[in-house]
């Protein structure tokens, strides 16, 4: 009996995990930013569900019961109690907790100065991504190689319309706007290929404006870098 229960739990949780994984799943994080957000989500999901169930239950119960026996004199006090607890205290408490987690999370995602930060420039056009490594003079198209466990500052801009740079498994998105440069800090925990896609509607081929971030271990990345720096530029 216990074994069957354990088995079904395993099946259920693996189903659950498959449901949450995917090449662009924010619930399958592979970097610190994405992990923080996914943690926030699960917390909010649980609390939100509780609130929803609670309010619906209250409402349902209120519809079932016959409350006309309440004397009018008591009503003023009762109405204030309903509103002050449910209408003011409940959302205020929920918001406070949410911000207590949310603001520090956002704080940590800022591109703080650090020793080992690498800079990558990405320019979007309809409908492709031009990648440039300023420190090494490497140019790439629709793919970005990065070392793992290194904070990367993506300097984002656009040459035509507004696009948005998004690698869901690594972290949040940031718009690429003509005339300005936005900086997005991302980091990958493990080697692998992470899909990215334009998230701001940018015209006809918006659906196909994708790219890949390939995270390599430190050694592999160094080798890749060397190989590319040696390559004469005009061959590409």
């Amino acid at each position: 009996m216990l074994k069957r229960l354990a088995n079904s739990l395993v099946v259920a949780s693996s189903l659950f995990l498959t449901a949450c994984s995917g090449p662009m799943s924010t619930l399958d994080p592979a970097g610190p930013s994405a992990r923080m957000v996914s943690g926030l989500w699960w917390g909010m999901f649980v609390v939100g569900t509780l609130v929803l169930v609670g309010v619906v239950w209250l409402w349902w119960h209120a519809m079932q019961r016959d409350g006309q026996s309440t004397a009018d004199e008591q009503l003023q006090e009762k109405q204030n109690r309903w509103v002050i607890w449910g209408g003011i205290a409940l959302p205020t408490a929920a918001i406070t907790v949410l911000l207590a987690f949310g603001i520090p999370a956002g704080h940590r995602m800022l591109p703080w100065p650090a020793g080992n930060v690498m800079e990558v420039h990405v320019e979007a056009r309809q409908w492709y991504w031009q990648v440039h490594y300023p420190e090494h003079d490497i140019e790439l198209l629709n793919e970005i190689y990065i070392p793992v466990n290194t904070p990367i500052d993506f300097h984002l801009t656009s040459q035509d319309v507004i696009h948005s740079f998004w690698v869901p498994r690594l972290g949040g998105k940031l718009d690429m706007i003509p005339g300005r440069t936005n900086v997005l800090r991302l980091e990958a925990d493990a080697p692998g290929t992470y899909q990215g896609q334009c998230a701001e509607f940018c015209g006809r081929a918006h659906a196909f404006m994708k790219f890949e971030v390939i995270a390599l271990s430190a050694e592999d990345f160094a080798a890749w870098q060397q190989e590319h720096e040696e390559e004469p530029k005009d061959e590409r």
Binding site: V55, L58, W59, H61, A62, M63, Q64, R65, D66, G67, Q68, T70, L75, K78, Q79, W82, V83, W85, G86, G87, I88, L90, P91, T92, A94, I95, L98, L99, G102
Partner: peptide, 29 residues
């Protein structure tokens, strides 16, 4: 962000006013 969340307060006030009205009334379906 905070201003957006704060708009939940007047909304919650309304929801609880409605709940309270149902609570202290007799509902016809």
């Amino acid at each position: 962000s905070i201003a957006s969340m704060m708009v939940a307060i007047p909304t919650a006030i309304q929801v609880f006013v409605w709940v309270a009205t149902l609570w202290h009334g007799r509902v016809t379906y």
